[in-house]
Nucleic acid binder design. Structure first.
Lengths: 111, 111
DNA sequence: TTTTAATGCAACTAATTGGTTGCAAATGTA
DNA sequence: TACATTTGCAACCAATTAGTTGCATTAAAA
């Protein structure tokens, strides 16, 4: 089964879980309280997130606290890096275009 | 059917298409040449990417050029923003911890 | 010790996904 | 006009996904 961070983050419930956990570690029951589905369904999402190292577990008696492995999120950020470069190039091109228009307002725009 | 940018980006073939298109606009046939699957399968991916506004089309005779809507990629970047704040907090905490250790090397660490 | 609570795991199911083949439409070319 | 090329769309299919119910295990509490 495919199990990478992009597939993990594709599901809206899992994104909500990530956002929830980011604030503080929580138990499966506490997490499930926030969703309109069974505890087992939420637990499956937790398993998927754990399997791709986005979540880590900490056993406390019979409770398990799940918390976010924030560093793993940086993988998405890293993937975006290549596009960030393109943003900048396009922005600079636009910037250059705008200043060209400004500097030549009297002749170029009059054409 | 669910069709958001996260689901679009979850598929590795679609991520490859995005990276390919980011450099220059291409036709479906040219894109399909880069993959070990039928043209129609690639076209389906193009449709999904187009439906969530990641790609735009430009008809040139009987050819269609697909190019990347780079701005749409910023939606992922925007979602990451909330976690970037957490990175910084954690980094600053670590930074503070390290300087505490450094400044109190002689007493605190001796305990 | 018995009972209750928290959790994970397995089996099942309906919907979705990602691929296929086949075909029709539209444009360019001989 | 006749033919080849580029493309999109529909029907089909196998695998995966996201949910369900039921049950076993373990730890805390009565």
């Amino acid at each position: 089964m495919r199990r990478d961070i992009f597939q993990a983050v594709a599901d809206p419930t899992r994104r909500a879980i990530i956002a929830l956990i980011a604030v503080q570690a929580m138990t499966p029951n506490a997490i499930a309280d926030n969703f309109d589905m069974t505890r087992q369904a939420v637990s499956k999402h937790l398993r998927i997130l754990t399997e791709c190292d986005l979540l880590k577990q900490e056993q406390k008696g019979r409770e398990i606290y799940y918390s976010l492995e924030i560093d793993k999120m940086k993988e998405i950020d890293h993937w975006l890096e290549q596009f960030r470069k393109i943003w900048e190039i396009r922005f600079n091109q636009l910037d250059h275009l705008l200043s060209t228009i400004k500097n030549n307002k009297n002749d170029e725009l009059a054409v």
